[in-house]
Design a protein around this nucleic acid. Structure first.
Lengths: 212, 212
DNA sequence: GTCTATATGTGGATAGAC
DNA sequence: GTCTATCCACATATAGAC
């Protein structure tokens, strides 16, 4: 895509991986603008020389985190959505469940990814602006996967008569919100599972035909 | 609470009101940290001298917006929640509907208010830190109003067996998310109403006893 | 009350030693 | 590849003219 190694988001080089983890933690704590390169370096017990050896700018670190986060979402959901052996409501339930899980287990990356989508611009550099729009495109594609399953469920009579594209908003809003309040320090596997169950029930219930 | 006029949030003085509107717009556009005092001043066709005449620091402007936003939410919801003449499901529907409406019509204030809740600290000043915790307390109180209605609905057999406090998370998450994607420039009264209807249906549906 | 300086601190980014 | 030292731009906040 650019002069940079465009596979970095999927398989970050070892040196980069540490930086992304540290930066994701720092961005989650204080937000993108308020986080300094020194903060990121301190988070991994280094100084900023290390960060600038691997990345040209703070925005590039941010974009790598965001892209990785979005890719994790897509990779996890696609096989479920495409599983024709399951009825749409069950598929949607599992997609919501999986998404909820990622918001907890991959909290720092996912929380940073959320932020990117609401950003209009990242700085002055047009290359970074274009990268940001690529992320928005990934988000749109992700929403469409959900919308398609909702359409199938509506046509199968499982769901109410909704605008599927619009219906993804409350659905994903509820799920994404987890990344803002969930404390990854607390909670074990079982509590995370119960929580994801509750979310998936809520979401599928919200789309089902009303009982009366 | 502090040496400042603590009623300012409810009835801002005329000079302050303009600043809050301009700042809310600017914060919504670029985020708190990335917004400069010059940005705020430019937004209202003035220079920073005006801003600093009314506010000691950027954080104080932010806190006034956030407090006003939270107060708008509480003021709107309390009378609905306390209307004993309506069954819990109807009350919850109207509360969700009203909340959704505020996310759209008062987008800039509400979006800034959302941000405050996810911030851990606002700066070094302990007075501002305390003010931020006061905002968190308002948020907790607000969630409790929803939780109480959910409890009533569960006891009345309208809702599923849920942990009411936990149930407010997907509910308010879905609603709060509106402030992030809704474009206040677009959409008239009718489209806002339809959207709020859809959200309220989704939310009450998500809590109702499953049809099967 | 609103403006134009300006003091002061901080943070992104670079250069170059090791 | 990692560090320290430094440049420079910019943003908060203040001083003081009008």
């Amino acid at each position: 895509m650019t002069a940079d190694d465009d596979t970095a988001a999927h398989l970050p080089a070892p040196g980069r991986r540490d930086i992304l983890e540290a930066a994701a933690t720092a961005f989650t704590r204080n937000g993108y603008a308020a986080t300094t390169i020194d903060d990121i370096a301190r988070e991994m017990g280094a100084t900023k020389g290390r960060v600038y050896h691997y990345y040209r700018a703070k925005a590039d670190v941010f974009l790598d985190i965001v892209t990785a986060g979005m890719q994790e979402l897509i990779d996890g959901i696609e096989p479920i959505a495409g599983n024709g052996g399951l009825d749409p409501a069950t598929r949607l339930w599992r997609m919501a469940h999986h998404h909820a899980g990622l918001m907890m287990t991959r909290n720092s990356f996912q929380r940073v990814a959320m932020r990117a989508v609401e950003m209009r611009r990242l700085g002055e550099a047009p290359a970074q602006q274009q990268a940001l729009e690529t992320v928005i495109a990934m988000r749109d594609r992700y929403e469409q996967i959900f919308a398609d399953v909702i359409d199938e469920g509506r046509e199968a009579g499982e769901f109410r008569e909704v605008d599927s594209r619009l219906a993804t908003k409350p659905l994903l809003g509820a799920l994404n919100w987890i990344s803002l309040w969930y404390d990854p320090q607390r909670g074990d596997y079982n509590t995370r599972q119960r929580l994801a169950d509750e979310y998936a029930d809520f979401i599928v219930g919200g789309l089902r035909r009303s009982p009366r």
